[in-house]
Design a binder for these strands. Structure first.
Length: 373
RNA sequence: GGAGGAGUGGCCGAGUGGUCAAUGGCAGCAGACUGUAAAUCUGUCGGGCAAAGCCCUACGGUGGUUCAAAUCCAUCCUCCUCCA
């Protein structure tokens, strides 16, 4: 993997990430396909929308269909038919989201499989090995993602473990075609974040992620952490803000030097009837859209906005028609991908602050403390 | 003609003397969702008001018993089943 920064404005930057399965223009939004596909859209359609990277999840793929099956079928690219770059998350997020179903110690994490209760063990080493076996382009280390609130001493102990795991992950990494990213934890304690960034830098990862954000904290804390950690990460490596976020979160992240983003929001919200437009969010199931002949977003380039009214989407969504999810997902992902592409182009041409101001206006409600403007 | 059964809030459907403006579900109205246990979950859901309270209207119609009726009695209306 090779990463180059081609232009920058303030701390925001434009870059190119070269991987075994193609190039990624950064800043990039990466749709989340936990089980190997983004819910509601096929891999080729997703690529046609402009997505260059898709996420998948090692914990989930380990349970079903199993790493062996994926390996036998030629790796995760061949198995899923996804033509672009693949990044897998390690299961660190499930340490947070499935907290009631797991136990954690220095060795690793033991889950009670959420499907049938059977035990599943992940260790830093097994996680790196499994991601390499699937042949993904970017692998994430196993980390512990603590919820908020958490006491400082608990967060510190958690971080020490995550740091030891990062060391072990680094040592376990053996296949160059699969890049390995470290993850900065440390909850919302600046000293812990600083310590985390220092120790990860010393391990010389291919890229660096900020994890443990949007875990129940007040939005201002998340924002300030991104600002702080963004300044601590190496300039010459891709920076990945894990799990975020809203359009406003992306703008804030880009402004603070982030290159990669992933989030389930555009896809999940689409399924739940919340659509993004250049004038803000709309809840398409609301009665007001019953006979609205306009497209979801006049300025949107997606195939749905080119052919479909809000009224029709409203009808399909209320009827719980599966196509409603497909169309809404198509639109929202295109919106996100265009959103980031527009900022990328604005950055490259020097118009970033103008674009940012426009976005901040549309998504003011999403802007705790007004950091965007 | 005879025998039995049933009519409850927009719909379906509980409730069989007071704790019932009436369980549930659906529909409706709105909200949440951030490295996906999520095509999920939550709130609301007769009307009015100076609104954690009060008033009005409500369980097919009418009348009655009772301190008190969706619940008991009489009668009428409608529907269903079976027998002639």
């Amino acid at each position: 993997m090779r990463f180059e920064v081609t232009s920058s404005q303030g701390r925001a930057r434009v870059g190119r990430l070269h991987t075994a399965h193609g190039v990624v223009d950064t800043p990039a939004f990466m749709p989340v396909g936990t089980l190997g596909a983004v819910k509601g859209i096929g891999p080729l359609d997703l690529a046609a929308l402009g997505a260059q990277v898709m996420l998948a999840n090692l914990y989930h793929l380990t349970l079903r269909p199993g790493i062996e099956v994926i390996e036998e079928l030629g790796g995760l690219h061949a198995f899923t038919g996804w033509p672009g770059v693949l990044l897998t998350d390690s299961g660190g997020y499930q340490v947070f989201s499935l907290a009631e179903l797991r136990e954690i110690d220095d060795q690793g994490v033991r889950f009670r499989n959420h499907l049938d209760g059977s035990p599943v063990a992940l260790t830093p080493e097994s996680v790196v090995r499994s991601q390499e076996r699937m042949g993904v382009d970017i692998a994430m280390v196993l980390d512990e993602c603590p919820p908020w609130p958490v006491e400082a001493d608990v967060a510190a102990a958690s971080l020490e473990r995550t740091t030891r795991w990062a060391q072990r992950s680094r040592e376990a990494h053996s296949i160059a075609a699969t890049a390995l990213f470290g993850i900065v934890q440390g909850s919302f304690y600046p000293k812990l974040r600083e310590r985390a960034a220092d120790s990860l830098r010393a391990l010389d990862f291919d890229g660096y992620a900020i994890g443990g954000v949007s875990v129940g904290e007040p939005p201002r804390l998340g924002r300030s952490t991104v600002e702080q950690v963004g300044a601590l990460l190496p300039e010459d490596r891709p920076r990945y803000l894990m799990g975020l976020g809203t359009p406003a979160d992306l703008l804030h992240g880009i402004r603070n030097g982030m290159d990669l983003f992933d989030c389930v929001l555009p896809a999940r919200n689409a399924r739940h009837g919340l659509l993004y437009t250049r004038d803000g969010e709309i809840r398409i199931k609301n009665a007001r859209y019953r006979d609205d002949p306009r497209p979801v977003d006049e300025a949107c380039s997606c195939p749905v906005c080119g052919s479909t009214s809000r009224a029709f989407l409203h009808h399909l969504m209320r009827s719980r028609e599966i196509t409603a999810a497909v169309l809404a997902t198509t639109h929202n992902l295109r919106f996100y991908l265009d959103f980031v592409a527009d900022l990328r182009h604005a950055l490259a041409s020097g118009d970033f602050e103008d674009s940012a101001a426009l976005i901040a206006e549309c998504y003011a409600a999403d802007d705790p403390g007004g950091q965007l403007s």
